[in-house]
Amino acid sequence: MKRTMLAVLVASLAMAGAEAKTIKMEVNGLVCAFCAQGIEKKLRAMAPTKDVFVSLEKKLVAVALKDGQDIPDATLKESLKDSGYDVATVARSDEPLEAIRRAAKAK
C-alpha cells in the first residue's frame, strides 16, 4: 500500500514537472502601453492565470499558469483578438515568468 502511494506521488510530481509553467505569445500590433491594457485585464480574469507580463520591446505577452492548469491556444488567441491584437505564435515553457521578465528587461 505504501509502495503504491509512493508510486502515485512520484508519478504526480513527474507529471507536474512536465506541465508548462508559462505561455509565451508573440503579438502583432503591440506598440502602445495605453492601448494594450485590455490584454492584461482579459488574461488576469482567466482562472488558470497566476501572473501576466507584457513587453512591447519584445512583442511578447507571457502568462504564468497556476499549478496543473492550462489555457487552450484558441482561447488565448480569441482573448488577444478581443483586446485588439493578433497572436503570431504561441509557445509553452518551463521557464518561470520572472526569468522571462528579467531576460526581456536585460538591455
Binding site: 502583432n28 500590433g29 485588439g84 491584437y85 503570431a88
Partner: peptide, 9 residues
C-alpha cells in the same frame, strides 16, 4: 479595419 503589424498598428 485594424492592421496589426509586427512593429506597428
Amino acid at each position: 479595419h485594424r492592421w496589426n503589424l509586427p512593429a506597428a498598428q
